[in-house]
Design a protein around this nucleic acid. Structure first.
Length: 215
DNA sequence: GTTCGGAACTTTTTACATCA
DNA sequence: GTGATGTAAAAAGTTCCGAA
């Protein structure tokens, strides 16, 4: 990382001077007059048409053909090598710097567009997830209701059975089953085969209360 | 007169080379 | 090997012009 040292300023000024000789049209506005060389670079001043820059400094809208060819090249490669830039520039009748600037701006536009697209995809994904969450929540509510009904039914049946005094009660038969050790993770009804865990479809892990009826 | 897209520009960041 | 320095290129941010 380079900081802007006085040495760098001098180097920058030298570059600017050199470039200004190569591309006088573009750089006449920003190369400081003599005596200003040691000052830090300043933003160019607002220049009116016809001022120092002259006709060459005027912004030119690129023609349709120029843009088409530039787009074509951008489609192939988002970055330009120096040789290709020069070749393209002479092909288009443009300054190589203009071609470079066009590619810089095009990359920026492309990046913005890509970000917008990614954002809208993520937004859509998020909306779908929220929708799915709502569905699952309402499904869970329904299942809870069903569970509550089942619990009530079990309670009714066990009360009736107790009243009858039968030794063949559901609780006694189930309690025998409860004494059998589960294979793996038995208490959750989860079994492991070959490193893969299997869970019975109707198992309900979080709401284990009903299981206690048989313990 | 205002807004917007884009060309042109400046500043910052990054990567690489060279040298002490 | 390592840190300082220089250089070039790209990214990021800004200014300003022309057209609608």
């Amino acid at each position: 990382m380079t900081t802007t040292t006085p040495i760098n300023h001098q180097v920058d000024q030298d570059h600017m001077l050199l470039i200004s000789q190569l591309y006088p049209d573009v750089y006449t506005q920003i190369v400081p007059p003599q005596g200003a060389a040691t000052k830090p670079r300043r933003r160019r001043k607002k220049s009116k048409s016809g001022e120092a820059g002259g006709a060459g400094a005027k912004k030119r809208k690129l023609t349709e053909e120029q843009v088409t060819l530039l787009e074509l090249n951008f489609g192939n490669e988002h970055k330009l090598e120096s040789e290709k830039k020069d070749r393209l520039a002479s092909e288009l009748g443009l300054d190589p710097r203009q071609v470079a600037v066009w590619f810089q701006n095009r990359r920026a536009r492309w990046k913005n567009k890509k970000l917008e697209e990614e954002y809208s995809i993520l937004k859509k994904d998020h909306e779908n997830v929220v929708l799915e969450k709502c569905k699952l929540e309402s499904e869970m509510e329904k299942l809870k209701e069903q569970l509550s009904e089942a619990e009530k039914e079990i309670h009714r049946l066990s009360e009736r059975a107790e009243g009858g005094g039968s030794s063949n009660s559901p609780s006694s038969s189930l309690s025998m089953e409860a004494n059998i050790d589960p294979p793996f993770f038995g208490e959750f009804g989860v079994e492991e085969y070959d490193g893969v865990f299997y869970m019975p479809q109707n198992n309900y892990i979080n709401g284990m209360e009903w299981m206690n009826q048989y313990m």
